[in-house]
């Protein structure tokens, strides 16, 4: 399986498309950073309206830690697309290109192939998140400096001391890897059912967008199913920026995401192992 994985990684990282994602992450990050450099003060003023009535908050509010949080929050919708771009292509792309049938005439196990496709997407996801950590966190800290971080929730104002933040980002990025791995598994799952490359990418995005809306809408019907949607749990990384950190909820979210990942992967393996390759 190691040679198979090596080949998969070789294919992923020799393909120009792979690097588009890293470019997009960089671009979005820079756009947010530039926007905050030029207009951050008024943004902060707006966000802190409620608190500012009674409290006078001074200092480097718009520091690198806060900017990174804002970047992570807005990338919530975009990173799944970038993960799907590679993971959704894993099986369908090769089916579409005709290389899948050539691979499968070689003595390799189909279950192993699915697993290797998953591992390949996982490695790519990890690197994408590491890259995000570098451009979002490191660059923001360079541009905006450090400071205590304000985390505004709908019903709470959380202040985290500057020397108490870095570990939170470490765990948050780890959690993001898990969340994005679930997306990768979903994409590969969808990828097994079709022979065209763009379908799984679009379907993944469609599912993520629709479920995210359901996760965020305050309707009784949605509230009932919310705990079972993986999108509800994908933002679990935010938990690390609460005080105290809701570890039980985060662990449960991680559990749900892991279960979805294993579920998607398992069904994909079962299905793909019996699939007629007609492409």
């Amino acid at each position: 399986m190691i040679p198979l994985l090596r080949i998969e990684l070789y294919k992923i990282f020799r393909r120009p498309r792979t690097y588009i994602s890293f470019g997009i992450v960089t671009a979005i990050t820079l756009v947010i950073q530039l926007a905050m450099l030029s207009d951050g003060k008024s943004f902060i003023g707006f966000a802190l309206q409620g608190v500012n009535e009674q409290f006078d908050i001074r200092g480097n509010i718009l520091n690198g830690y806060l900017i990174t949080y804002l970047i992570l929050q807005s990338l919530l919708i975009h990173i799944p697309l970038l993960v799907a771009l590679v993971a959704g292509d894993a099986l369908a792309g090769e089916a579409n290109a005709g290389t899948l049938r050539l691979m499968l005439t070689k003595p390799i196990s189909r279950v192993q192939l699915v697993f290797v496709k998953f591992l390949g997407s996982f490695v790519y996801t990890v690197l994408l998140i590491v890259w995000l950590a570098i451009v979002a966190l490191v660059l923001s800290l360079v541009l905006f400096g450090t400071g205590d971080m304000i985390n505004l929730k709908s019903d709470a104002f959380v202040l985290l001391l500057q020397d108490d933040i870095l570990w939170r980002y470490g765990l948050a990025f780890l959690f993001a890897v898990l969340a994005m791995t679930t997306i990768a598994a979903l994409s590969i799952f969808l990828s097994a059912f079709t022979d065209n490359a763009i379908g799984p990418v679009i379907s993944t995005m469609g599912i993520v967008v629709i479920l995210t809306i359901m996760s965020n809408l305050e309707l009784p019907l949605f509230n009932l199913i919310k705990p079972y949607l993986f999108t509800t749990h994908m933002i679990g990384w935010k938990g690390f920026f609460d005080d105290p950190v809701p570890y039980a909820a985060i662990m449960r979210s991680a559990g749900v995401l892991a279960m979805y990942t294993v579920g998607f992967l398992g069904i994909t393996m079962l299905y793909f192992n019996k699939k007629d390759i007609k492409s």
């Binding site: 040679p3 198979l4 080949i7 070789y10 294919k11 020799r14 393909r15 120009p16 290109a97 005709g98 290389t99 049938r101 050539l102 691979m103 005439t105 070689k106 003595p107 390799i108």
Partner: peptide, 30 residues
């Protein structure tokens, strides 16, 4: 399958890789 080689319809290969890379890769898979 170790004792079979096949070309099914058009052999679609990895266009962004060289002929050598394609051959080397599938050789490993054999």
């Amino acid at each position: 399958l170790k004792n079979i080689g096949a070309v099914i319809e058009r052999p679609d290969l990895y266009g962004y890789l060289s002929g050598w890379d394609n051959l080397r890769m599938f050789a490993t898979l054999s």
